[in-house]
Amino acid sequence: MKKLSVFLLFVTVFLATAFSSDVPTPYKIGDKATDFKLKSVDGKMYGMADYKDAKGFIVVFTCNHCPFAKKYEDRINALAKKYKPQGYVLLAINPNDPALEPDDSFESMKVRAKEKGFAFPYLFDDGQKIYPQYGATKTPHAFLLDKNRVVKYIGAIDDNVDSASDVKEKYLENAIAALESGKTPSPETTKAIGCSIKAKK
């Protein structure tokens, strides 16, 4: 009997460690998101702690190569310009491993940022430590956080990837408006197609 219980304990511990180790649980609405310190295309390091007066943060996982992400580049840039004066800081993070997707190298990020005149820090998730904690799975993938880094919205930027002028619902902007007026965003999460994040197995 004692042997059996020792065995069961062993099995339990084994199972617990086997399934809890590598993959963090993706953030849900209400979770507190981790801060980071990542290098931007200007060579400086950025994190949310740098913005003491921010009312909130728009964290967008995006990249150079993905056609879906490309279609949103100008819209992301416009969001950054529009909301910075209002106290909402947009931080874009490229989560891809450049070994698997050369277009997403740090050098290519610099080129892209210059070409498009990015008005936001375009950060490189070196070592791919940050995106798994957020539970980002694709590009683009947006997270809206309040000033205490509590997750308020997860999902798409709007409801029409093909054409900005045909958008009916601006999910992310609506969520910011809700946050601004102390309401709960509706919807709090949305779904959209995107390119899977390229990570080594």
């Binding site: 799975t137 694709k138 993938h141 779904k191 959209a192 197609i193 995107g194 390119c195 899977s196 994040i197």
Partner: peptide, 9 residues
């Protein structure tokens, strides 16, 4: 699938 985020493939 209820948990699909939309990432492909």
């Amino acid at each position: 699938d209820k948990d699909w985020s939309g990432s492909i493939p």
